[in-house]
Structures are given as structure tokens and as C-alpha cells.
Amino acid sequence: MESSFYFIQLLNGIQYGFLLFLMASGLTLIFGIMGIINLAHGAFYMVGAYLCYWLTGITGNLFTGILLAIPLSILVGYAVERLAISYLYRRDHLYQVLLTYALILIANELQSILWGNDVHSVPIPELLRGSVQLTDNQAYPVYRLFISATCILLAAVMYWVIQKTRLGMTIRAGASNREMVQALGININWLFAIVFSMGAALAAFAGMLAAPVNTVYPGIGDNILIISFVVVVIGGIGSIKGAFIGALLIGLADTFGKVLLPEMASMVVYTLMAAVLFWRPQGLFGKV
């Protein structure tokens, strides 16, 4: 039993890491390119989870629910960028923290007005409901494999966009040197709007994928927000690669921490972060 048990934990850790990566990749790009510290990123996760719950309930199918929720969450991201974040580009980090903190309060209240304070569950579609038998008494749910597969696919697409396309080139240039992008005559408003709404959509998508596993409840975005910050800080601000490695590290540390040190599971993550930063204050792949 031992080895297959750990294997399942390994799969769980990787799957959690992938979800964190979806959160953290947007967050790190918003940091790196726009210079914005966005506390409201967890709110997008929450928006995604609730949209998924709502639309799945209406359409009766998770896939159509998600397909409808994605454009909506991009729209939400765009609206937030235009209506709030765009006032912050020249402001001190302090005010960014404060304003995006206010956005969390507002988002949580709107959620409570729209959907109430109950815990909701989202049904897994028939197709993905089974589980894979690993040993006689250990099985692994197919839906979790589906999450991991989707995340890998998405990560591959992101890699392709960032490495191979013109937009990706601009994003890379922006992450390494913000002034340069402006000097190159690229429309910075347009770039910021794209980066922000895509980041928001990725966070929301993570929320949608996780909704059937974790249920949907008020304040769902708060906890994952802080963990995503830890991922970004460990990986180095502005580095997608760092976000990926950091997310997997944290995903595994958290999962195994819960198994091996249940008394202080959540502290494992923060201790890991402190250790990494003690060794490299700029994060694993951050620039000095």
C-alpha cells in the first residue's frame, strides 16, 4: 500500500501545482510587465468558480458551463483593468495593495449578494466520473487526471505563445524591461489590457477546473491568492519558468506536508519560501 499511496499523493501534488501555476503565471506577468501588485487575483479565481457553478447549473453540463464562463471572465478581467487597475500604473505599490484589497472586499460582497453564503458543489460530468484502479484498493479519480492534462495543454499553449508569437515577444521584452517596450512604440495600454485580462482568465479557469473537486464557497479565492504569491516570490517576479517550478514545488510541499506533518501542514509552504529566499532573495529565476 505504501508506494501506491505516495504515488497518489504525488499525483495530487502535481495536480495542485498545475492549478497554482495557472494562478501564478498571470500574477507573475502582471507583476513583471505592468508593475502591479494585484491582490484581487484571487477574486478572479472565485469569479471563475462561481461562474462555473452557475453556468453548469443552468446548462446542466460542466463543459458548456466552462466554455461560457471563459469569455465572461475575460470580460470581467478587462473591465477591472479599465475601471480600476489603469489608475494605478504610476502609483506607489502601497496604493496598489490598498485598492486591490478594496476590490477583494467588493468582489466577496458581490458574490454573497449574487450567490449567497452557502457551499455549493459542482457535478462532475458523466464522462469523467470514473476512477483509475491503481492497486486492489487504491484508485485515482479520472477528473483529477483531466485537470492535470488540461493544465499541461494550457502550459504548452502558453509556452508556444510566449516563445513563438509576436505578442509573446512583446510580453517577454516587457517582463525583462518595461521601458524598452514603451520605447519600441508598442501600444502599452493594449498590451496591459491583454496581459491583465488573460491573467484574470487563467485564474478564473483554475477556479472553474477546481470547482468540482473543491466545492464552491465564499472566500474561496483568499487562500489560493496568498499561496500564489508565495509561488511567484519563490519563482522570481516576472518569470513564467519560475512560476512553473515554484508552483510544482509548493503543490508537492503542501500535499506531502499534509500527509507527513499534519500538525503544521500549512507552515511547510511558508518555511519552504523562507528557505528559498534566504538563499536567493530574488527568487529562483528572478533578476536582481
Binding site: F31, H93, I226, F229, V230, Y270, M273, L277, P281
Partner: peptide
Amino acid sequence: IYFIMLTLAFAQM
């Protein structure tokens, strides 16, 4: 940003 995040993370710890 690192300072902000670090203080936040330690508080969470």
C-alpha cells in the same frame, strides 16, 4: 514587491 509579499507570507506562517 518582494518585501510586501515576504511580510505577508511570514504573517501567514
